[in-house]
Amino acid sequence: MADLKIAVILGSTRPGRNGKGVADWVVSKAAGRSGADYTLIDLVDYPLPHLDEAAPASMGQYAGDHTKNWATTIAGFDGFVFVTPEYNHSTSGVLKNAIDYLYGEWNNKAAAFVSYGALGGARAIEHLRAISSELQIAHVRQQLSFSLFSDFENFSTFAPQALHDDAAITLFDQLEAWARALKGVRGQAA
């Protein structure tokens, strides 16, 4: 068993979504790695209503059972791979909502980004980088951006170009290095 736990968070719940194929590909590419265990977290399985907590997440005073369940899930991970579509030049509302529910559970952890869309989802990643910085999530440089035109058949079946394989290895290497370093930071703070 690896010393790091990484969540691959699928940031789309839309019927007919393309993200499931992308997230499954990420998990399959990470499966042979010895430095971390990668687990798919599908937001379909965490039906969070539009943010309904009275207190700001930074206070850590979660009232709803759905929030407490989400917090327990996220707290157990050392890092994250956010898989996001690009909707209207940004990330999905459901992913932003899931992120906004928590604060301390994200702090001093590492993240990497995987996106897909007409232009590869790069603008969604830029928004997630800003959000992550506010939550004290250290995000790595390497990202994966998949085009609906060149990495999907008929805009729906995920068929990534081989050029993404090496980039994925770099992404995992960077993410695991940062997650391991930040695990030490969290240990010192405790």
Score class of each variant (00 low, 15 high):
A2V: 04
I6H: 05
I9S: 10
R14S: 07
P15D: 09
R17H: 09
A23N: 09
S28E: 14
S28W: 07
A30M: 02
A31S: 13
R33S: 04
S34E: 12
A36R: 03
D42Y: 10
L43T: 04
D45P: 04
E53D: 03
A54W: 00
A55Y: 09
A57V: 00
G60L: 02
Y62R: 00
T67G: 00
K68D: 03
A71I: 04
I74E: 05
G79H: 00
V81M: 02
E86V: 11
E86S: 06
N97P: 11
K109Q: 09
K109Y: 02
A110C: 10
A111Q: 11
F113V: 14
S115C: 04
S115D: 12
Y116I: 10
L119N: 15
A122F: 15
A124Q: 09
A124I: 01
I125D: 02
E126V: 10
I131P: 07
I131E: 06
E134P: 02
L135P: 06
I137R: 11
V140E: 07
R141V: 15
L144K: 08
F146D: 07
L148C: 01
S156Q: 13
T157R: 11
T157H: 12
A159D: 12
A159Y: 06
Q161A: 13
L163W: 10
A168C: 08
I169P: 01
Q174Y: 14
E176T: 03
A177P: 06
G187F: 04
G187T: 11
A189P: 09
A189C: 06
A190L: 15
